[in-house]
C-alpha cells in the first residue's frame, strides 16, 4: 500500500515539474500565443497550431543555425577539456599528501563560489591583454579551468579505499595508467554525471558570450536566445525547444549508465 502512495505522490511531483516544459513546447507551436509586450503567454491553452515560430527562427533567420553549431562546439570542447583537466587534479587531491592540500582545496571552493558577474571585468581585461578577445578561445579557455568539476570529482574520489591503489602499484609505476585503469572505471557514473552537468552549464551560458565575443558569427545560440537579442518571443520559445534536445540526448546516455551503476545497489 505504501508503495502505491509513494508512486502516486512521485508522479504528481513529476507532473508539476514537467508543466513548464510542456507549456514551452506546446506554446512554441501556438499562434500568437505570446504577449510580446510584457513577455508573457497570453493564455495557458494555446490557440491554433502553426510552425511560424520555427519558420521564423530556422528559415527567416537562417544564420541562427551557425550559432547552434557554435554552441555545440563550445559546450563540447569545454566539457571534454574540463574533464580532461579536472580528473587528474581531483585524483591528485584525493591521493597525494602534501602540506597545503587542505588549504589549497579550500581555496578551490572559495574561487568556485565567486559569482561570474564579479570576475567578468577582470577576465575581460586579462583576455584583452592576451589578445584573445572576440575569438572562440575567449569563451573556451576560462571555462576549461573552472574549479567546480575538480571539487565535485574530489568529493566522489574521497570514497575510494586505498586498497585499490596498493594493488595497482604492484604492477605499474606510471600514475596515469593507475588512474585510467583502476580509478576511472570505478567512478564512471560520477564522471558522466559531472560531464552532463558541465555540458548543461556551458550550453546555457549567456554572460560570457555577451561580453567576450562581438562578432555575431562566433556567438553561441544561448547568447541569442536571451532576451533583447532581436528575436521575437515566439522564436525564443521555438529556439528553447530545439535547444533542449541535445542535452536531453546527453542525459538519456547518462541515464543508462546511471541505471547500470545503481544496479549494484540492489536497494
Amino acid at each position: 500500500m505504501k508503495k502505491v502512495v509513494v508512486k502516486m505522490m512521485l508522479s504528481l511531483c513529476a507532473l508539476l515539474f514537467l508543466l513548464p516544459i510542456m507549456l514551452t513546447v506546446v506554446h512554441s507551436f501556438g499562434v500568437q500565443s505570446v504577449d510580446e509586450g510584457n513577455f508573457r503567454l497570453t493564455s495557458l491553452v494555446p490557440s491554433g497550431f502553426s510552425l511560424v515560430g520555427y519558420y521564423d527562427l530556422l528559415i527567416e533567420h537562417f544564420y541562427v543555425l551557425r550559432n547552434f553549431w557554435n554552441s555545440v562546439f563550445y559546450a563540447g570542447s569545454i566539457t571534454c577539456l574540463n574533464i580532461a583537466v579536472s580528473v587528474p587534479a581531483a585524483y591528485a587531491f584525493s591521493q597525494a599528501r602534501f602540506k597545503g592540500k587542505e588549504l589549497l582545496f579550500f581555496f578551490y571552493i572559495m574561487l568556485m563560489m565567486m559569482p561570474l558577474q564579479v570576475t567578468l571585468l577582470p577576465n575581460y581585461i586579462g583576455l584583452r591583454d592576451m589578445k584573445l578577445l572576440d575569438t572562440p578561445l575567449a569563451i573556451v579557455l576560462p571555462s576549461v579551468f573552472a574549479p567546480f568539476s575538480v571539487f565535485l570529482l574530489t568529493q566522489y574520489m574521497k570514497g575510494l579505499e586505498q586498497s585499490y591503489v596498493e594493488a595497482a602499484l604492484l604492477e605499474t609505476k606510471s600514475v596515469f595508467r593507475i588512474m585510467l585503469q583502476m580509478i576511472v572505471p570505478q567512478l564512471r557514473t560520477c564522471i558522466l554525471a559531472v560531464f552532463v552537468f558541465v555540458f548543461a552549464e556551458y550550453w546555457n551560458m549567456v554572460e560570457q558570450a555577451d561580453i567576450y565575443l562581438r562578432r555575431e558569427t562566433l556567438k553561441p545560440l544561448s547568447g541569442l536566445l536571451a532576451i533583447g537579442e532581436g528575436l521575437t518571443t515566439s522564436e525564443v520559445l521555438a529556439g528553447s525547444v530545439i535547444f533542449m534536445i541535445p542535452i536531453v540526448i546527453l542525459y538519456l546516455y547518462f541515464h543508462d549508465s546511471l541505471e547500470v551503476g545503481l544496479e549494484s545497489m540492489k536497494l
Binding site: 513548464p20 516544459i21 548543461a200 546555457n204 544561448s222 533542449m244 542535452i247
Partner: peptide, 8 residues
Amino acid sequence: PMLVPTAS
C-alpha cells in the same frame, strides 16, 4: 528543468 533555457 535543468536543461530548459532561462528565457522560456
